[in-house]
Design a protein around this nucleic acid. Structure first.
Length: 149
DNA sequence: GCCAACGTTGGC
DNA sequence: GCCAACGTTGGC
């Protein structure tokens, strides 16, 4: 089991958007993944792409709201592993599908992460622009603890 | 809204 | 292959 963190501006695609998509058109088949809920696409950065490609079904994914909120707000899970990104005609880029697992009881803010000794090495702090990041198990557990879950 | 940090592009 | 120019991200 690996852990990840994805960032999204809530005005573009929020945690609630993900939840809503899953209510309306849940993923029923890997083959249809490109048309179904929770498609994580549009990544155009090689490092982020590499992380998407490394995601395995069942991996846990922290969902972070950038710009507005600036906090980890929920936990998602990888349900479909990488396939060519349907939003671009270029085989270099890939998408995965994420499913909401649960909303955090209390969002864990960037400020909290920065001020926490155990979390200050997170990519969120050290490589703030990377949109798909690996998270260490210890960090994942710490975030959950801070959220009150 | 500003701007620093960073990644990408393309001319040479 | 270097690097200036440019575009984007995201915190402040």
């Amino acid at each position: 089991m690996n852990y990840w963190l994805v960032k999204s501006e809530p005005e573009t695609y929020s945690w609630d958007t993900l939840v809503k998509e899953w209510k309306e058109k849940p993923v029923t088949s890997d083959k249809l993944a490109g048309k179904q809920a929770g498609r994580w696409d549009g990544v155009r950065n090689y490092q982020a792409r590499n992380n998407l490609q490394a995601m395995k079904k069942g991996d846990k994914v922290l969902f972070y709201h950038s710009v507005i909120g600036k906090a980890v707000v929920g936990i998602a899970q990888v349900v479909v592993e990488h396939y060519p990104d349907p939003t671009i005609d270029d085989p270099r880029w890939v998408a995965v599908n994420l499913k909401p697992v649960k909303k955090l009881k209390n969002a864990v803010s960037l400020e909290t992460v920065k001020n926490n000794k155990d979390l200050s090495e997170m990519f969120l702090v050290t490589h703030s622009r990377l949109s798909v990041q690996p998270v260490k198990e210890k960090e994942y557990k710490k975030i959950l603890k801070l959220s009150g879950d």
